[in-house]
Design a protein around this nucleic acid. Structure first.
Ligand SMILES: [Mn+2]
Ligand SMILES: [Mn+2]
Ligand SMILES: [Zn+2]
Ligand SMILES: [Zn+2]
Lengths: 138, 138
DNA sequence: TATTTTTTGCAACATTGGTGCAAAAATGTA
DNA sequence: TACATTTTTGCACCAATGTTGCAAAAAATA
């Protein structure tokens, strides 16, 4: 596991540091998406807030994690399981937010449907976020 | 126009105040979604920030406006054109964010496609946000 | 008009996120 | 390993965003 983490960092030309290892490890072990606050909570304040912010930014830029839209003014991050690269994400799966446990999970197998837009619109990225009750809560 | 505004407020059992009239008017005249900041900018600081926050909250609760998910930690609001009621929104249209002009618009005519979820998941609401280039920018 | 109810503005606070810069850690080389 | 170079981190400080309690003001009701 710790090997896999170092590999991911190396592959993305990132220095291997305690903070990055710990945060990447959290993502690898989390079934759902994580917010900045979740990460800070689980690191026992061993890292500065700023470091967490910068690590998340870096990971998004490198295509290690992607973010998920929400209506409640929070940013959620989840591991990219597709072959995302630096500066170019290829995540095309549906995201699910459970109203009960409040977890957000990537439904890797549920592919975003095609949507036909009116004339004149060019489509770059489509995000689908579905809320309801997850398979663990019911 | 000013009649229509008063009617909407009355129908929702809201007191008719300057602030509410002005903000509702902004939504009725805006082609796209509005953020809190847009509203503050356009009201010449004639209202307190807190009043704007509270007005937006109230409008969402009453089903006059709905909010739109974003990945950048901002909350966007747009008029409900379907028959949304207090505590129960029925908006089922696609939202489009233009990468050029940065405007977000409701594509009232583009209906959210059906998405089949894995066993065990119950679907309540589906949000589709598409980004790209809008019909005015290209 | 007078009374009651609702809304507003203010002050104060909390949370979230960003920047510059020096110290510390990681990397590359000998 | 030791040293030089590059990268990352922590700190202090700042800015934007959003919330709450409460008294004053405005709106609705009688
Ligand atoms: Mn995802
Ligand atoms: Mn809309
Ligand atoms: Zn759940
Ligand atoms: Zn545009």
């Amino acid at each position: 596991m710790m090997e896999q983490i170092a590999d991911i960092l190396k592959k993305n030309q990132l220095s291997i540091t305690e903070g990055r290892k710990k945060i990447l490890n959290m993502f690898l072990n989390s079934p759902g998406a994580l917010a900045h606050a979740d990460i800070e909570k689980n690191t026992d304040a061993s890292f500065d807030r700023v470091t967490v912010y910068r690590t998340l930014q870096t990971f998004v830029e490198k295509g290690i994690i992607h973010n998920i839209p929400t209506t409640d003014n929070s940013i959620l991050y989840a591991l990219c399981k597709d072959n995302c690269e630096a500066g170019h994400h290829h995540d095309n799966h549906v995201h699910f937010i459970c109203d009960v446990c409040d977890k957000t999970i990537c439904l890797e197998n549920v592919i975003i449907p095609e949507v036909r837009l009116p004339k004149g619109f060019t489509q770059k990225q489509t995000d689908v976020v579905i809320s309801g009750i997850c398979n663990k809560c019911k």
